[in-house]
């Protein structure tokens, strides 16, 4: 459970989503100590809003979904709104990293933080997809 104030803030932000967001969770049965806590963290966020749902797949068994979402490891969350913008979270979203995941949910849901017009124009010049891997630790 979140502290009451934090839950209220998250509920308010998730209620503002203009489109539903699906957290596509990938687990694996063996050798994944963090899969259960990651699923529980996703469930806690989804419990705050009817607009956020969790769908679970198995990294080893569900090869179609692994290919569809391009997931490499477990535990993984694909944050998918009206379209899949390619946002993934690997590991357990806890501590300050809950904020990263909630911002990803807000972006997928049609809102959230954005970049300046100058940055967006510059990134529009990219001629191919680039992939960012952002390493973090929970604090």
């Amino acid at each position: 459970m979140y502290p009451h104030d934090a839950a209220t803030d998250l509920q308010r932000r998730l209620a503002a989503l203009s489109s539903p967001v699906k957290l596509v969770f990938f687990t694996q049965t063996f050798g994944c100590d963090t899969c259960l806590p990651a699923r529980q963290a996703a469930d806690r966020i989804a419990a705050l809003s009817e607009r956020v749902t969790v769908e679970e797949h198995n990294l080893v068994l569900d090869r179609d979904e692994v290919g569809e979402y391009g997931v490499e490891w477990a535990p993984a969350l694909a944050v998918v709104g009206a379209k899949d913008a390619g946002m993934r979270y690997y590991g357990v979203p806890e501590g300050y990293e809950i904020e990263s995941l909630v911002e990803a949910i807000e972006i997928a849901g049609g809102g959230g933080p954005t970049l300046s017009d100058d940055s967006l124009d510059a990134l529009d010049t990219l001629e191919r997809n680039v992939h960012l891997r952002v390493f973090v630790t929970p604090t």
Binding site: W73, G86, Y89, G91, H131, L132, R133, F135, V136, T137
Partner: peptide, 11 residues
């Protein structure tokens, strides 16, 4: 552009 956050202590 696509992006993955990787929680390093899990990996």
């Amino acid at each position: 552009m696509t992006a993955s956050v990787i929680e390093a202590t899990s990996f």
